[in-house]
């Protein structure tokens, strides 16, 4: 079974890859078919994930584990939202109300707490570890904040210089990250194609 899964995975990957390099009709069609299958499987995977989430929470509720009530709330919310969405559609005002009144505010609040947490962490950074790198980090952060900070008096003088200077470093760093990401992605794909990594199981 392990060999079969590996063979299927490898064949599929090679076909799709070859389809990109060799635009043959058959190969293209095959690629498109496999791609469509992947899209469908991915969509079903979302549903499976949701179901697994429900089952886990239900198990916690059944076993009366600690904080299982939150799992129950989750499951109820899920069921309600899913049901209403099926019934009324995603554009219904109920659905928009759920999104606008619950989802967005909750997540936005968490994001706002993140801002305060970052400030607090920056304040206590020197108390934990007072070294050169910590000081440099804080200085850079402060400088950029100052450069981007609008003032009643207009932009801070030299903000363009800071922005360009910052942009230079950011662009360079970003490119480096992107190259690394690309290379990693390529290597991971090759390993999967060669059967070295089997994220689909069977190791």
């Amino acid at each position: 079974m392990r060999i079969l899964t590996a063979v299927i995975a490898m064949a599929s990957g090679l076909i799709v890859l070859l389809g990109y390099f060799y635009p043959l009709d058959a190969l293209t069609q095959l690629r498109i078919m496999l791609t469509d299958w992947a899209i469908i499987i991915a969509a079903m995977a979302v549903l499976i994930g949701i179901a697994n989430l429900v089952f886990v929470q239900m198990d916690k509720i059944r076993k009366r584990e600690k904080n299982s009530i939150y799992g129950g709330l989750l499951v109820l919310s899920l069921i309600a939202t899913f049901g209403l969405g099926l019934i009324f559609g995603p554009g219904h005002q109920f659905m928009r109300l759920a999104v606008d009144a619950i989802i967005v505010p909750v997540e936005a609040s968490l994001m706002a707490i993140l801002a305060v947490t970052l400030v607090y962490a920056s304040i206590r950074l020197l108390r934990r570890r007072a070294d050169v790198m910590t000081v440099i980090f804080l200085l850079v952060a402060v400088i950029f904040l100052i450069a981007m900070m609008p003032t009643p008096f207009g932009p801070v003088p030299g903000d363009w210089l800071v922005t360009q200077f910052a942009g230079m470093f950011s662009r360079g760093g970003a490119r480096g990250l992107l190259i690394g990401i690309a290379l990693g992605t390529l290597l991971t794909g090759i390993r999967v194609l060669f059967g070295i990594d089997r994220p689909y199981g069977g190791n």
């Binding site: 801002a115 400030v119 920056s122 206590r124 904040l145 100052i146 003032t151």
Partner: peptide, 18 residues
Amino acid sequence: GVGLFMAILAIVLGSLWS
């Protein structure tokens, strides 16, 4: 702008105090 100003101020002062 005000938020950034307060953040910068908190960070600077807090870091010095820390």
